[in-house]
Design a binder for these strands. Structure first.
Length: 106
DNA sequence: AACATGACGTTGC
DNA sequence: CGCAACGCCATGT
């Protein structure tokens, strides 16, 4: 039940290290975890987000286009955008982030 | 163990 | 640049 797998834990760990005002893509997170191609699994980890990971800045992870995913529901993406803007991240006219400026590079 | 699912990515048209 | 198809991976049933 509430037990998360090592992979999920790793995702939460790395996501927690993303500095405020910076973002990372699902694909890069997967790659940094040594599982290139597991971008979808990363998304699942962040959407499931257990109580023990309430402090994980899930909003700092976007897709490779620099845009917020999941357009169906509008509440969640909206909250994500709100938080990012509060950290200084800028969205262009197409609701897209300039990854050349805000992508977090280690 | 097999099948279905998804907050993704890349390539082809 | 927008859309469709295919690929990849970890989970849940």
């Amino acid at each position: 039940m509430g037990k998360s797998t090592n992979f999920y834990q790793a995702v939460y760990d790395l996501t927690r290290r993303i500095p405020s005002g910076k973002v990372l893509t699902y694909g890069l997170v997967a790659t940094h975890l040594g599982r290139p191609g597991a971008a979808r699994a990363v998304g699942q980890a962040l959407k499931t987000l257990p109580p023990e990971a309430h402090d994980v800045p899930w909003h700092r992870v976007v897709n490779t286009k620099g845009e917020i995913s999941m357009g169906g529901r509008v509440e969640r993406p909206r909250e994500q955008r709100r938080r990012l803007q509060a950290e200084g991240v800028v969205f262009d006219a197409n609701d897209r982030i300039d990854l050349n400026r805000f992508l977090w590079s280690m």
